[in-house]
Amino acid sequence: MIVINGTPHDTEITDPRRSLLDHLREDVGLHGPKKGCDQGGCGACTVLVDGRRVLACLTLAAQAEGRSVTTVEGVGRDGGLDPLQEAFIEHDGFQCGYCTPGQVCSAIGMADEVARGVPSRVSPEIGAASFDLSPDEIRERMSGNLCRCGAYNGIVAAIEETYLDGPR
């Protein structure tokens, strides 16, 4: 059983080779998580597993058993978009839109990591009690999500604006 966007799913995983990504896309019908490389090189498949951002392409579906998975389809609120998603539109944080679901999920997980005290390569003091969400921090922490259209400026602006006062 995997809880997907709040709903328990008992869809049988008949082939152990099936990745969480293909499970979500092919078996559950959630196409938000994207396949950009299938080898952990682009971040387009990023989903949240138990609240943490992971690459669905390198996760076997069987490994997600008993976990709670959130895809971009599950991040909105009250049937509408999350403020982060609104900010992506406002700041033109995408062009083709293919990496966007991964960027959105990654940003949510990233903000949570900052709140939990996970350091980054550019954190001024690795032992600090807390970390700021400066543009430099956002850029470093989001570097696992490639955008070949080059919408990075807009993505960083959207994240900065959304999490100015910390994650929600």
């Binding site: 951002r53 996760t59 350091p119 390569r121 690795i126």
Partner: peptide
């Protein structure tokens, strides 16, 4: 981070946030 900071530094220099989570 306090007593073995070089471990944390090495980790955050590798891979990406998502990969480090797994």
């Amino acid at each position: 981070r306090r007593d073995f900071p070089i471990i944390a530094e090495a980790i955050v220099n590798g891979a990406s946030g998502q990969i480090r989570n797994t």
